[in-house]
Design a protein around this nucleic acid. Structure first.
Lengths: 258, 258
DNA sequence: GTGAAAAATTGATTTAGGTCAATGCTCTAC
DNA sequence: GTAGAGCATTGACCTAAATCAATTTTTCAC
């Protein structure tokens, strides 16, 4: 675990922390990679063109799709960060999930035929999109494509368990700690900087995701910093003591892999 | 909505409420139905035999599989109820999800190759199991089988969003109300009694699922009963005012469909 | 059916975290 | 650069829910 304390506490100016925006996942770290491969990315690029559109650019606050839009595309995040948002009845905003480079979104709409939440870009982002209706064009590649899709969906289901653990944990400090670990392990899994990074979302976004008050998020950050497990400077964040952070959450090691 | 107030408040003795155990889903209400069909249930029963084993019986507290067991089967619940449980570090028990008749489980292990939580029967239950390795035997049926599997997984992903909403809602009374609606809509979707039913899980199970104290679950039940939206008698439960229950949660109508 | 164990309820007390409010910081547009 | 808006932090206060504890009810094994 010693390889995680890469940056001495005061070495980097906070402003220099890598933003998610600046980090684009290469295809081989993208959730859709297997599917692109199977669809003939290398072998038949012109076939792929009909199915996958690469790098659609989004500005901050742009909507990728809106709740109740009918399902057409599966997306993969290349760079930036997005959030699925909705209302929980009395106009209370609720963030269902965040999407980072390498993540796929829209998978939950295949069956129902419509997207059930609105997805917005939290910062300048780019996505690849796959036209699900055109998958039929893949011909012989089709069934191995589905095979890859099943893996991707299974993986996503497993990831949702994290969320369950995240939201079900009682103490707010623990919840935020689990959230930070979730972020870090995710970024690492996709080959991005995962020790020091800039949060793309506001404190309110985190609050609406974790089901707590924005002020509490702020206090929890302060408190984790006082414990010495995190260095927080606005949105610039560094995990300074991973084991300490794990200890706060009470999580087991192997289940995390940061 | 008037069709929901089927049972006048004092008409039925609590003990006569239908238990989940007594309610078995027919194949056409089972999450695996499409897959069984595609695999040739009606057309080639002997082929199906090699892939699907029907009705494995489980007693209360029996484990279907244990965390870290290697993945082999996808299961579908025929009757009864099960729960995926884990530890959140310091021995604190955590319930990740409940599974009811019609639900599939094990989907999240396809990709990783191992189950990441332990699944136990909460009461006498029975499951069908599908040997994933033998799916290859389906031959020509294979790709349409995968197609159905993708629908099932997509549907499950959408369902997980409920969970997110469930756990992220602040007030404990609201959380429990959403939980009851989730149960009811699920039971209804699979053609089971959904107004009056017997909870298969303990208050502690619910508490460990919703991330609150067992005593708080008990108090929240009492409080919902005082509001007149629920009639609770131990584990026997009846939704006596669905609109009222919806009002407590603040949820929108169309998103629920109980 | 009976007794023991497990589960559920209820009460009293304490504490975590929500709410209200004031102030400080930092991006962005000009 | 400067102004303004949006975002973040901190404090004071108070409510909701955790904890501790005692009692009752239900369930299960014999």
């Amino acid at each position: 675990m010693s390889d995680l304390n890469l940056f001495p506490l005061s070495a980097r100016a906070a402003g220099q922390a890598a933003t998610l925006t600046s980090q684009e996942v290469a295809c081989d770290h993208c959730g859709m990679f297997g599917m692109c491969e199977e669809a003939g990315l290398s072998r038949e690029p012109q076939l792929l063109e009909q199915v996958v559109s690469r790098r659609t650019a989004l500005a901050r606050h742009d909507e990728l799709f809106h709740a109740n839009d009918s399902f057409q595309h599966i997306y993969a995040v290349k760079s930036g960060a997005l959030a699925a948002v909705g209302e929980d009845g009395k106009g209370q905003r609720k963030v269902f999930s965040f999407y980072f480079p390498g993540d796929m979104l829209g998978l939950d709409a295949i069956d129902s035929g419509y997207y059930d939440s609105t997805v917005v870009a939290l910062e300048k982002s780019s996505v690849c999109k796959l036209d699900y209706a055109n998958v039929a064009l893949l011909g012989e590649h089709q069934s191995s494509f589905y095979h890859q899709l099943i893996y991707a969906m299974s993986n996503r289901l497993r990831l949702e368990r994290w969320t369950s653990l995240l939201l079900g944990t009682q103490s707010t400090e623990q919840r935020l700690a689990v959230f930070m670990l979730y972020l870090a392990s995710h970024l690492k899994a996709h080959g991005l900087a995962h020790v020091e990074f800039r949060l793309p979302m506001t404190r309110s976004d985190i609050a609406d995701y974790l089901g707590m008050a924005m002020e509490t998020v702020s206090r929890a950050f302060t408190s984790l910093q006082k414990r010495g497990v995190l260095v927080v400077q606005g949105r610039n964040t560094r995990i300074s003591d991973l084991e300490g952070l794990l200890a706060v959450t009470g999580l087991e090691y192997p289940s995390v892999s940061v």
